[in-house]
Amino acid sequence: MNNKELYKDLTDKVNKRIKSFAVLIDPDKIDSSAKLNQLIMMAVENKVDYFFIGGSLMMHQNLSWVVSAIKEGSNIPAILFPGNNLQLDPHADGLLLLSLISGRNPELLIGQHVLVAPVLKKSKIEIISTGYMLIHSGKPTAAGYMSHSQPIPSDKPDIAASTAMAGELLGQKVIYLDGGSGAEKPIPPRMIKMVKKSIEIPLIVGGGITNKEKALQCIESGADVVVVGNGIEKNPGLMTEVANIVERYNHSLNVHN
């Protein structure tokens, strides 16, 4: 995909009420070329819309390798989902510039962004400003621990909605509700619905989606992009199940229209 077209593509889909499916790859959890290539092939076969690439830590220097493999093996956009300002690769198609608006850690609201801004400004990577919100998922997650932030309680959809509205008013292009890697529970449908009704920008939702029923519930509640990562690591067949759910939902929408 050409530079500066990712966000337009996403908003065009949202305006048509078309749902998208993103597969999250943590480079630290990919330990072989065979495993990575198989994942990419499955994504191509299942018509996955986006690859999100990143994690809370970077123990191994796998990021550039993963991005290159995706670019060589598919036409699926490779979008960085960085856990810190070191997780950059100039060959990626896009980058979710995360501002952790659910927390009060200034480093993740603006601090690390200042450090990396000169590099991003000169790059050809499409930057998508993202209001990132951590939601309590039943247990502490790596994202919560590393960000030194308190997730929004899962039974407080009004706080989530107000936070999302603030992010939109501050100029964020998308809102991302996340339970974090290894989340025990997905984002509650009531919260997704309230957030979606409160904003006019795309809504991405991930964390705790371990079966097709949870994926469908997430989509029906208002998520424009559903993200699955840890669930696919444990059960690769989940990719096909979620892809089928998204395809059926979009097809039923076209039929009724």
Rank of each mutant, 00 (worst) to 15 (best):
N2R: 12
N3I: 04
N3H: 08
E5T: 02
L6A: 06
L6S: 12
K8R: 00
T11F: 07
R17E: 15
R17V: 00
F21W: 02
V23S: 05
I25Q: 02
D26L: 01
D28S: 10
I30V: 04
D31E: 15
S32W: 08
K35G: 12
K35S: 13
A43H: 13
V48Q: 11
F51P: 00
F52I: 13
F52W: 09
I53M: 04
I53A: 06
I53P: 00
G55Y: 09
M58G: 09
K71G: 10
E72N: 09
G73D: 03
S74D: 07
S74W: 14
N75E: 12
I76N: 10
P77F: 09
A78S: 07
I79V: 11
L80Y: 02
F81W: 14
F81G: 01
N84L: 02
Q87D: 02
Q87E: 08
D93M: 01
D93W: 00
L95M: 05
L95R: 12
S102M: 07
R104M: 10
R104Q: 04
L108M: 05
I110Q: 07
I110C: 12
Q112P: 15
V114E: 07
V116G: 05
P118H: 09
P118C: 02
E126V: 13
I127V: 02
I127F: 15
I128W: 00
L134G: 06
H136Y: 06
T141C: 04
G144P: 01
G144W: 00
Y145K: 10
M146W: 12
S147R: 07
H148V: 12
H148Q: 03
S149E: 04
D155K: 01
D155E: 08
D158R: 05
I159R: 08
S162W: 14
A166S: 02
A166H: 07
G167S: 11
E168F: 02
E168A: 11
L170I: 09
G171Q: 03
Q172K: 14
K173M: 15
L177W: 13
L177G: 06
L177N: 08
A183W: 05
E184A: 04
P186A: 12
R190A: 07
R190K: 02
M191G: 14
K193A: 10
M194I: 06
V195E: 11
K197N: 06
S198K: 04
P202A: 04
L203A: 03
I204G: 00
I204Y: 03
V205P: 00
G208W: 11
I209P: 05
I209H: 10
E213N: 13
E220R: 13
V226N: 06
G229M: 10
G231A: 14
K234C: 08
P236M: 13
P236N: 05
M239Q: 01
V246I: 08
R248E: 07
R248M: 00
R248H: 14
S252I: 10
L253P: 03
N254K: 13
N254P: 15
H256D: 15
